[in-house]
Structure formats: structure tokens, C-alpha cells
Simulated assay, not measured.
Amino acid sequence: MFGYIIPDQQAMTPEAQQRYRTAYCGLCRRTAALHGMAGRLTLSYDLTFLDLLLCSLYEGETPETVETGRCPVHMIRPIQWRYSGPTDYCADIGLALHYYSAKDKWQDDRSLPGLGYMKLLQARRQEAEARWPRPCRAITRGLAQLAEYEAAGCEDLDLVSGCFGDLMAELFDYKQDRWSPELRAVGANLGKYIYLLDAWDDLPRDLRRGSYNPLKSLSAAPDYEEQMREIFELLLAQAAAAFRRLPCVEDADLLENILYSGVWLKYHVENRRRQSR
């Protein structure tokens, strides 16, 4: 369920693209500093969005660090990166999410790559949990509840997507302060969207394999695609409405690009592919 909250690069100016890259590289840099080279494997666009959001909302509370140097991916020329207080939180949360995602793949499918990835991240996951016990408990609790629903074949979309939405709400609630209601609303609606878009994207494969998918029954309805589009639009509209209530100034254009355009990219690509068949 990673890689859906992405930027729309084509709709960005070159200057905006550069600012996004410095934030992405900053998260990568701090993830490597906290968790070694294995930590770099947990880097995601989704956590970059959360990092941008929290750094913008809490701008000025911790100093922003801007550095220039080389990295294993960009060996030829120096690159610039930036980060501030929330970046370490996002690095830890990203690692915990990837660890438990790998654990689920091992437990559900006996995936050997999942087992190897889980063991690779094991020690670092314990460090992240020690620093952030509340959100890490939310990850384990939420994924365990979701596994129960999936094992039971639950097709109550509000229930299963709401479970992942609640998990994401906890992760977005960084400081549990006056901005909690808005942050939780952004996280909850994006979490529901990610879960349902992932299910929508996987449905053809799951039908072929006979695997669990909460959309199986709904997909038989003649207006299935229209219903899904309406659900996606509603969830993203609610996330955007909550975001607009936050006093984000720094990188607001990047956040708006992701929320209003980027989140739709994978849906549009898959939808066009289906229609062309």
C-alpha cells in the first residue's frame, strides 16, 4: 500500500520539482542516518508527503537543516537536501510500516522475500518503537485488526477501509495538539483512499487467483466503476478540506499539487489501461 500519495511532476515548475527533491532526499538522508543503508529501502513518496506536511505546519519550531553532498544514488554531482524536526519521525514511522508490511506478507503468503526484509529491519524497528511507542502501537493494532477482517472475508468497505484510515490518522497526529482534528482527518481520509485504491487496483488479479478483496461483490454491480470514482472523490475532497484548515505556508504549493493532482495519477493510468482493453 505504498506509492499512491505521489507528486504530479508534470504540473510542477522546475523550482517546485527541485524543492520536492530536496525534501525527498532529506528524508532519505535522515532515514539512512537512523537506520543505515537498509533504512533507505523504506523510503516512500507517502512518507515524504507526511514529512512535507508536518515540516510546513510546524515551521520554525525546529531549525531547518540544508546541506549539499553526494549519495550512493547520485555519485556524479552533488545534491542538496533539507530536513527539520518531523523528518526523523517520518523516517522511523516509514521503517515501522515497511517492517510490519513485510511481516504480513510472510505470515499470510509465506513470502521468503517478506521474511528476509522483515529480518533485515528487525533491530531498527525496535529502535523506532522505543522512540515512538504510540504510533507504532497503532500500526501493530491496526494491521492486526485489518488481518482479522480480511481473514473473515469482510466486504464492509467502511469497516475495512476505516481500519486503515484509523491507523493513518494516528500516524498523522504527530504532536496530539490543537491541530490534531485536522491532521487526523487528512490521515484518515487518505488512509481509506489508499486502502480502497489498492483493492481496486488489485481486483483483476485477486479475481483470477481467488484471493480476498473487499470489492468482489460490489464489482458485479453495473455501476461499479462509477461508485468507486464517487467514493474516491469524496474521500479526497474530505482530506483536502481538512488540509485547507491547516495554516501551512511553506511548500503549500507542493502539498496542494499532491493532494489535488498527484493522488489521482495511478488511478488515471490504471483506468485508461482498463478502458483500452
Rank of each mutant, 00 (worst) to 15 (best):
V186I: 14
A11N: 09
Q80A: 15
P86R: 04
L97Q: 10
V160E: 09
V186W: 13
E129M: 08
N189A: 08
G210P: 03
A38Y: 00
E233Q: 12
Y193K: 10
S101K: 15
Y4H: 11
A242H: 03
A123F: 01
S211E: 14
M168A: 07
R125I: 00
L234G: 01
A138N: 09
S161M: 02
D92C: 09
G187W: 04
A32K: 12
A252V: 11
P181K: 04
Y45N: 01
W132L: 01
I194Q: 10
G191H: 07
G142W: 01
M37T: 15
G39E: 04
Q122H: 14
L215W: 06
A144I: 00
E230D: 13
L197T: 02
T140M: 09
Q227C: 08
L196G: 02
L52G: 00
R178V: 13
A221C: 06
A128T: 03
F232S: 06
D158S: 11
Y224W: 05
Y193Q: 13
P7W: 05
Y212T: 03
D108P: 07
M75L: 12
A252M: 03
V269Y: 13
T62W: 02
A16P: 01
L234D: 11
E59D: 15
L203P: 14
I231K: 09
R178Y: 05
D108C: 04
T22I: 06
L259W: 07
G36Y: 06
K119T: 04
L41P: 02
I258M: 14
L41A: 12
W200R: 01
A23G: 01
S261K: 14
V269Q: 14
V269G: 03
L190F: 11
L52T: 01
Q107E: 10
R40K: 15
Y195P: 09
D104K: 11
G153E: 00
W106G: 11
S217Q: 10
L157T: 08
L259C: 07
A147G: 05
F2Y: 13
L159C: 08
C25W: 12
V66R: 14
L171W: 06
Y83P: 01
A130C: 01
A199T: 06
L218Q: 08
M228Y: 07
A33M: 13
Q17C: 08
L54A: 09
K175T: 07
I231T: 09
M37G: 02
A91R: 01
Y24Q: 02
C248A: 12
K216R: 15
